[in-house]
Amino acid sequence: MQDKVVIVTGAFGALGRVVATSLARRGARLALVDASGTVPDALASEFVAHLLLPGIDLANHEATQAMVAQVVARYGALDAVVNIAGGFRWETVADGDPATWDTLFTMNLKTALHVCKASLPHLLDREGARIVNIGAGAAAKAAAGMGAYAASKAGVLRLTEALAEETKDRGLTVNAVLPGIIDTPANRRDMPQADFSRWVAPEALADVVAFLLSDAARAITGAGIPVMGRI
């Protein structure tokens, strides 16, 4: 990853921060993008040499295009994208709000679509170009209360597969990781009785992302890779 220019979305969150740290240690030059309008002090200190882009509305295609242009203006190139931005809601179909489906499709699928589309002109025909999307293990089968979330993440996987087919002869690989429950502070608060040791550590997931960005994964495209821990 030495000197590779990588956009990481959702970069101020628990997983995004760990992925960013992992890539920075491997020598990548990062653009850390987040919807939050405030950069946490600790993050600003750790990534002082990188480009921090708070307050970016990835649900807006024009704003996303402007973000990518800003990254290319700063670094002169773009080598890879890691789409982490997204969200979760637990609602049953019977008692939930149909608007939640629109919300999660926007948060999880449309943001990834916009970043992929805005980045393509800079990634196509660039040697070693990569896109890694964060899907979910739930994309394969929805549990109760996870219909909207699972459907949106299934959309991320279908986006990954379609874009990989479109670009497989243009020097770009497009893959998704499909994690189970990630060991984050928010998930620990929501499920305090769970055995956290069985969940996916963010550092372990970051290692899989880094692999897919590397030359070692050059023959892999269109894959959805389960990273389920021991669930």
Rank of each mutant, 00 (worst) to 15 (best):
D41W: 12
I7D: 03
Q2M: 07
E46K: 11
M146Y: 10
A14I: 14
F88W: 14
D95E: 14
V68C: 05
A73I: 14
P226N: 15
G147P: 04
L120E: 09
A162H: 07
R74K: 14
D125W: 05
V82A: 03
A201L: 15
K4G: 02
V8S: 00
S152R: 09
M191I: 05
D215P: 05
A69I: 06
Q65N: 12
R29E: 00
V68S: 09
A206N: 10
H122C: 02
L163Q: 11
I225H: 10
T38E: 15
G155T: 05
A112I: 01
L15A: 04
G147K: 00
A63K: 09
L23D: 07
Q193K: 14
D3P: 00
V156Q: 07
A85N: 10
L157R: 11
G86R: 06
A139R: 10
P121C: 06
V8P: 08
L124P: 02
S214P: 07
T92L: 13
E62V: 11
V200Y: 14
V8D: 00
L157E: 04
L212Y: 15
F211T: 03
Q65L: 08
D215H: 02
M67Q: 00
A129K: 04
A112N: 03
T9S: 11
A49Q: 13
V93N: 05
S45Q: 13
D169W: 13
A69G: 07
D190P: 02
N187L: 04
T21P: 01
T103G: 01
N83T: 03
V6L: 02
M191R: 06
R130M: 05
A204M: 12
P121V: 14
D183I: 14
P121Y: 04
Q65Y: 10
A44D: 08
K110C: 05
T100S: 14
D215T: 02
D95P: 10
L51F: 09
G16Y: 03
E46N: 04
S214F: 04
L30W: 11
V208E: 01
H114E: 03
E62I: 07
V19P: 03
S36E: 13
I7T: 07
A164N: 11
M228E: 13
F88Y: 15
F47S: 01
V177R: 01
M146E: 09
A136F: 10
A194H: 04
I56N: 02
L163R: 10
D195L: 02
V5R: 00
R218P: 00
A118D: 08
G86V: 07
A112K: 01
L123D: 08
H114I: 03
D41A: 15
L23G: 07
G171Q: 04
A140S: 13
G155L: 02
S45N: 08
V33K: 01
Y75A: 10
G145P: 06
F196H: 13
V82D: 01
V93T: 15
V5W: 00
R126F: 11
V177K: 06
D95W: 12
Y149K: 09
G27S: 08
